[in-house]
């Protein structure tokens, strides 16, 4: 795969997305999703309690937050896979309350899953073709007579091959999806989602368990989605990636939205540092613990600060926090 990597090109971030000061629930210039008072409880636990949230159209929005913050639950609620106890949410001007998941997908809001769902005993090509919308051959009576759907199926196949080529999976089109590696399955799931020509792509941890080279190409794919006019909302824990591609960041903690803003500002927000990033995000722990010299520190971290920090101080803070 190493020959496939194109060096990352700096792309301009989309700005001017919000109206007024960037605070939780800030209004957007052109929102694609508007969430109001959505609550979901599991027994006594409130998993999601979002008072107001708008997702900007035509931009890449990252949803971050500690484990258990309710990110995936919010994803499930927005896509109709789960039903909230209260609240309304609107996609593209249409209310989605009570709309089943398959209808949400047909409206152009497509998602992927945190645990990749490649359809193992279907071939890669079949997986792709399954993603296409409005297939005549998927209706029962028409499916019995190939002349109704053969032409459309050929067109879908062509489009599938184009996408597979983009995702470097075209050589595997006849293999079972179960034979793909974990990273390739992530690519396949994303490519399959794109077969439905969505307007909003929701990716749940697209980079989890993917090696750095593949991450690089996935990042490019996600940026390309924006170039093609799609809106992207993704959950991710990798802060480098969030900084690199997100135009807007929404931070959740304990079910609520605690901060919003562009990546640079949000990551300096003390509430975000407390709830999620930790106070020593800029430090290279390898240098702090003395495993290697400050000169060898990760270039994205603050080498001087790492060298000057005493490991005992951090450990003390950590033990205090856990009290």
């Amino acid at each position: 795969m190493s020959s496939d990597i194109t060096p990352p090109v700096a792309r301009e971030k989309t700005t001017g997305l919000h109206v007024g000061e960037a605070a939780p629930g800030v209004a957007k210039a052109d929102p694609i999703i508007v969430v109001d008072g959505v609550r979901r409880t599991f027994g006594g636990l409130t998993a999601v309690d979002v008072a107001h949230l708008e997702i900007p159209r035509g931009a890449i929005t990252a949803l971050i937050g500690p484990n258990g913050a309710g990110k995936t639950t919010l994803f499930n609620l927005l896509t109709g896979f789960d039903k909230p106890d209260a609240g309304t949410w609107v996609f593209d001007g249409k209310s989605l309350s009570g709309v089943p998941a398959y209808k949400v997908a047909r409206m152009g809001q497509v998602r992927t899953f945190q645990l990749t769902k490649a359809l193992g005993l279907l071939t890669v090509l079949e997986n792709m073709k399954l993603g296409a919308k409005g297939q005549v051959g998927e209706r029962f009576w028409q499916s019995l007579f190939p002349f109704f759907w053969r032409k459309q199926d050929e067109k879908i196949e062509e489009r599938a091959f184009e996408l597979l080529k983009k995702f470097k999976l075209d050589g595997k089109s006849e293999d079972f999806a179960a034979s793909l590696s974990g990273g390739q399955r992530k690519l396949l799931e994303m490519a399959r989602a794109l077969m439905s020509e969505p307007t909003l792509v929701m990716l749940d941890e697209p980079m989890a368990g993917v090696n750095p080279a593949l991450t690089q190409s996935l990042l490019e794919h996600i940026l390309n989605l924006k170039d093609e006019g799609m809106t992207v909302l993704f959950v991710e824990h990798d802060m480098h990636m969030v900084r690199h591609i997100a135009d807007w960041v929404v931070v959740m903690a304990e079910g609520r939205v605690v901060a919003e803003g562009d990546p640079v500002t949000v990551m300096k927000n003390p509430a975000v540092i407390d709830a999620y990033l930790g106070a020593h995000q800029e430090l290279d722990l390898g240098v702090v613990t003395g495993r290697y010299a400050a000169a060898d520190a990760d270039p994205t971290t603050d080498a001087a600060a790492s060298g000057a920090t005493d490991v005992d101080v951090i450990e003390e803070e950590a033990s205090e926090e856990s009290k």
């Binding site: 997908a105 359809l119 079949e126 399954l130 998927e138 399959r192 989602a193």
Partner: peptide, 17 residues
């Protein structure tokens, strides 16, 4: 194809509309 997809993972097929 849809039916076989459902056999493999119905949530994935649901997510595709």
């Amino acid at each position: 194809r849809v039916l076989k997809g459902i056999r493999e993972d119905e949530d994935a097929v649901r997510a595709l509309g």
